[in-house]
Design a protein around this nucleic acid. Structure first.
Lengths: 142, 142
DNA sequence: GATATATGCTTGAGTAATCAAGTATTAGTG
DNA sequence: CACTAATACTTGATTACTCAAGCATATATC
């Protein structure tokens, strides 16, 4: 038990950092939760075509159920809108609404400020490396 | 909104990976939640001296309140034990109990298997490096 | 040495997710 | 073409936290 497997250590450090960042971002994004912010970001990247809820779940890292619960109030307040999927009646498409675009821009400004607080700009190189490791892990885990 | 700030992207990737890992570890550690596992790990490292709950909270990344709620059932089933702190009556010390040591060893075995699934062992060097970046970020954010 | 303030911890109430089970719909198979 | 299996959700119940408030105890200040 002396030496901890590096990847296990990684998971532990990851959990800690995420818990802290989650709290910070949840309360610092101007009334937008971190998950909501992330959803808007993905939907914004998807553009007018929108996304199926399940693909959104996959890219955010939540379950389909979690996405359903998150989207429902967001739809009510006009951050996102839904549309039937003419190719598959099981699924509907979600897309970002004008209100969501505004909120996203607001949130992004704050997110950038928060980001600067946690990683000093001279660490950008390291961040790049970490990002590449993340994307590899991301592919491994689904 | 075209290019996303690298650290903001980092936070988003982190959130996704953590959500997925959290689910995997929560259900793969043999009845031990990931947070409980992490707590046992820290307490094990602290040894017989134990830790104050607030220091435990800080190293796990949760709030004091969260730690209270996690520890209470763990104490009941004999994974940890508590002891008054003779230097400061406000705080009590928590330490790992024999039952906790056993559970931790079991959990560690499974955690290592899960870890191998996520990151192939030839990437251990990279993980060590990422861990060092994490611990630096960790110091920045408290 | 009294009083204000800070620290450590717990608790009630709330929230954000989970899982398991259910309902449609679609795709695959003999 | 019927029938089984898989997919895309949604919902009820539960879990794992959070925050705000409160209670003790400790520390600092006058």
């Amino acid at each position: 038990m002396q030496d901890i497997h590096p990847t296990v250590r990684f998971v532990i450090d990851l959990a800690r950092i995420q818990a802290i960042l989650n709290r910070r971002f949840d309360s610092g994004l101007g009334g937008l939760g971190l998950s909501e912010f992330i959803i808007l970001l993905h939907l914004n990247e998807a553009g007018a075509a929108g996304m199926r809820r399940i693909d959104l779940a996959e890219s955010v890292g939540l379950t389909a159920s979690g996405v359903t619960r998150l989207l429902s109030p967001m739809e009510k307040i006009g951050l996102v809108k839904r549309e039937a999927n003419r190719d598959d009646a099981r699924s509907s498409l979600v897309m970002i609404a004008p209100g969501g675009k505004r909120k996203l821009e607001e949130g992004m400004e704050r997110a950038e400020l928060l980001a600067e607080e946690i990683v000093p700009s001279e660490k950008k190189g390291e961040m790049k490396y970490v990002a590449s490791v993340f994307s590899e892990i991301g592919r491994n885990i689904r």
